[in-house]
Nucleic acid binder design. Structure first.
Lengths: 343, 343
DNA sequence: TTGTAGGCGTTATCAG
DNA sequence: CTGATAACGCCTACAA
């Protein structure tokens, strides 16, 4: 049996109220008494019971994270960023992931009720408003990379449009006119925004998007592979490929290699995310960098603010991205406006 | 304010005890009363308060996971496996990750106290016994991929030795005698075991390990790149490279490409883990597959058993691995004894 | 089949 | 500075 506040009080010859004060640095306690209590507590290995504390204070010191079924390293890195902030504050992290549809997300949300002081929700396939009814009332929430601008909730998105715009503009500037787009699944918000960014770059350059040059993938290597073959069969063939994430770009690279198409001489290729492997494939991949841990960290910090100050205004923030030019797009890395990855 | 059991009781014209019975399917309740209570509860959106429940039952319905700072997708996939099992049982997952040393792990362990009914701990750099004193007493624990056999705790490891043995034997059988080993960090248990498996294969083939053919990496692409260059400079040069994980193998591939060394003609290459990209690099990577989600899932199932039956014997289990032959090692995929990945 | 009442371990409010 | 004591919301004998 773990010892309770009562054991400590008895052993130290004080009331439980005083022990409580010591453990919460609340109220004044005589230095001697404090020392005595500290000592007894250590000897008895006393640790306050979290449940009792929660029951009495209505605070859990825990934040909840609800995530969809994420592909690749995204999940790890988001959690890494969140966890770091959370630990720094001595809080805890309740995680629920791998939700594939709205029903599951809603169930997860319900399950979090009463167990967390705030929520980070990520559901790139769902509109924020659809979640509204199911979010526990009065609970601070940060929407991470959700569709919409977050509406009445705090929201944080990475700048998908800006990043896609930058890559596309880069390709256009280097003379490419027929650019094949390997898109993500259209129900996914990131995928839609990245496509939109590309379209805007086309428009700004006076070019127009050709529907036959857009092939949908699902963010997996395999789908990138397949899409590249499809685009390769077109007549005339595109001279550049922009995949909505690096995994698909890498799948495309492997397809091009098998087809004997040289990159970047015969076909420029670019991706999105700058996953670690991107610089180690052949040729190294031009892409858009976004710091996922930072995305998580910023979400956590925002949530803490919202918890601390419940009346604070909702905020909608955008995490900037960065074009990373490597060899796969044919431009000389380091040339022009683009940022160049260290070797 | 969320409604309490008392609100439901009043509204339904019964005592709180009866409402409690309904929500715990315990004791007999008249069908009519049950229906009435269910209905009222739904209308009031009543959800039992977890803290109160925990306080009175001493059960949290939560399992804790303590993980080190994991590289790449490993973390995601382990959690995916655990989370799936946990959700299936309607339990919760308290996560604490990114711990770099013993002090941090111990702090995390302490913080879990009283908040979880069981613990999955992963710390490939630490010996199980070192953790012993810091584990909350009497709490069911499963050690995941920890050094040692787990000792007095349940343990689950992937068959690192067996996998490494299989790759190495495969290379030896195809005529390679000078095999360069790119090892993981030696403080890491997986890394040590994989090296040991390779050594055992050497021994079984009557070959001996040459120290100059072993270069230490840290599981990152970059370190694999560097190690490959180092091995390439040897005279005579090795004819094959076995990296202790795929990331390093991919780094090595990029180094070989830059050096103009053809794979597999001039140098066979193999990795370990079978990460998704492994089959999309050039040439596709021969490696060892291990299902990480399954590793997590099995750990969770074992933990649930241990929680259900506190007196159950501690068990030490091994998750099998599987050799995946692709082009990078020069053997014809599908030939011989090896398992061949579908296209 | 249902109700009563004590207890789970803390915090917080009031008196002293 | 310190001590009683009433919540907090729920579970569970024990009674009825």
């Amino acid at each position: 049996m773990a010892s309770t506040i009562r054991d400590v009080a008895r052993e130290a010859g004080v009331s439980i109220a005083t022990v409580s004060r010591v453990f919460n640095n609340s109220g004044l306690v005589h230095e001697d008494t404090r020392r005595r209590i500290d000592e007894v507590a250590k000897r008895l290995r006393y640790i306050p019971n979290g449940a009792a504390r929660t029951l009495s204070t209505r605070r859990t010191q825990t934040i909840g994270v609800v995530l969809p079924d994420l592909y690749g390293e995204f999940f790890s890195e988001v959690i890494r960023g969140i966890d770091q902030e959370v630990q720094r504050s001595g809080w805890h992290l309740l995680v629920s992931s791998s939700h594939n549809d709205r029903v599951e997300i809603e169930a997860a949300l319900r399950a979090m009720r009463g167990r967390v002081d705030g929520l980070i929700v990520m559901s790139p396939d769902l509109d924020a408003h659809e979640l509204a009814q199911n979010l526990p009332e009065m609970l601070p929430v940060v929407l991470l990379n959700c569709a919409g601008d977050g509406g009445v909730y705090n929201s944080l998105n990475m700048d998908n449009r800006g990043g896609a715009y930058a890559v596309t503009e880069h390709l256009l500037r280097h003379g490419h006119r027929r650019i094949g787009l390997i898109t993500g699944p259209m129900r996914n918000h990131d995928a839609r925004e990245r496509l939109r960014g590309a379209h805007e770059a086309f428009a700004a350059a006076g070019a127009t998007a050709a529907p036959e040059l857009e092939v949908a993938g699902d963010f997996s290597e395999r789908s990138g592979h397949r899409a590249a073959l499809e685009l390769l069969a077109l007549e005339p063939r595109p001279t550049a490929l922009f995949a909505a994430n690096d995994s698909m770009a890498i799948g495309a690279l492997s397809a091009l290699r098998e087809a004997g198409v040289r990159v970047p001489e015969e076909m420029a290729v670019a991706g999105f995310d700058d996953i670690p492997i991107a610089r180690y494939v052949s040729p190294p991949l031009t892409t858009v960098r976004v710091s996922i841990p930072e995305l998580g960290g910023q979400a956590a910090r925002r949530l803490f603010e919202a918890i601390r100050d419940t009346k604070s205004e909702q905020r909608h923030e955008l995490l900037p991205t960065e074009l990373v030019v490597r060899r796969s797009c044919g431009a000389r890395p380091g040339s022009g406006e683009a940022w160049c990855a260290p070797p």
